[in-house]
Amino acid sequence: MFPSSFDYVRASSVAEAISILANEEDAKLLAGGHSLLPLMKLRLASPSKLVDIGRISELSYIEDRGEYVAVGALTRHRDLEVSAVLGSSVPMLSHVASLVGDPSVRHRGTIGGSVAHGDGASDLPAAVLALDATMVAQGPNGTREIPASEFFLGFLETALEEGEILTEIKVPKIHGGWSYQKFNRRAQDWAIVGVAAVRNGSTKVSLVNMGSMPLRALATEAAMNSGASISDAAALAAEGIDPPADLNASADYRRHLASVLVKRALEEASSS
């Protein structure tokens, strides 16, 4: 529960952080610290240097930009939870943020940290996937945009390249229904299985903790978008998916939960 020793530097701007990252092979960004520090305490991660970007205030904002809401990467979960802009335009994001961890996690953790960590068991990555958000990254070569559908690549692996920093998340406004179903044993825990469903024209459904990264329930989406009943579509929730097994759930139980929760999510999303 004690990390290996490491150097620490606090960056005061995105540009400074990018330049430090470029010059240090084994540096890691530190934002809220709620994904990285636990790994370091277990000595599963031992970066040589932490570049603390947690106080770069220019990256903490929630702005209405017409068709979408722009969320700065260092916006804390608690700010998402209580945002009036999100409350009226993307209420699902506020709701999902309110279910992350416990109050101390929500007051420290950031949306950018959570999304860039790309944990398949976390709530926010799956939420941005179902919301069809766009990630904005800055690096030594400038700024680029990455759609959520292309952002998550594998176990704790994203499309961010070495030296790039996730700076903003553009979240399309929700005009239809939505639902987030988080199933766990203790409120503070990661989901055993979670489901995000958004009916924004078409239907998008993403799954939490059903694989090594946040996943789309593609078979369910296809069925819904071709007019299948909710029950029939939900039965396909885990099709083509090989979920993990752990102390809380076998793979079979996870598949079963995915179907139950997708059905509940679609019903709720269709009734709102």
Binding site: P38, L42, R185, R186, A187, Q188, D189, L247
Partner: peptide, 24 residues
């Protein structure tokens, strides 16, 4: 307190050993 077949304790952190909180 769960063990695997080799005798490793699988619940050696408070993320795995589910002490409930007031919320529950």
């Amino acid at each position: 307190a769960s063990y695997d077949a080799a005798g490793n304790l699988l619940t050696s952190t408070l993320a795995d050993y589910l002490v409930p909180s007031a919320t529950e």
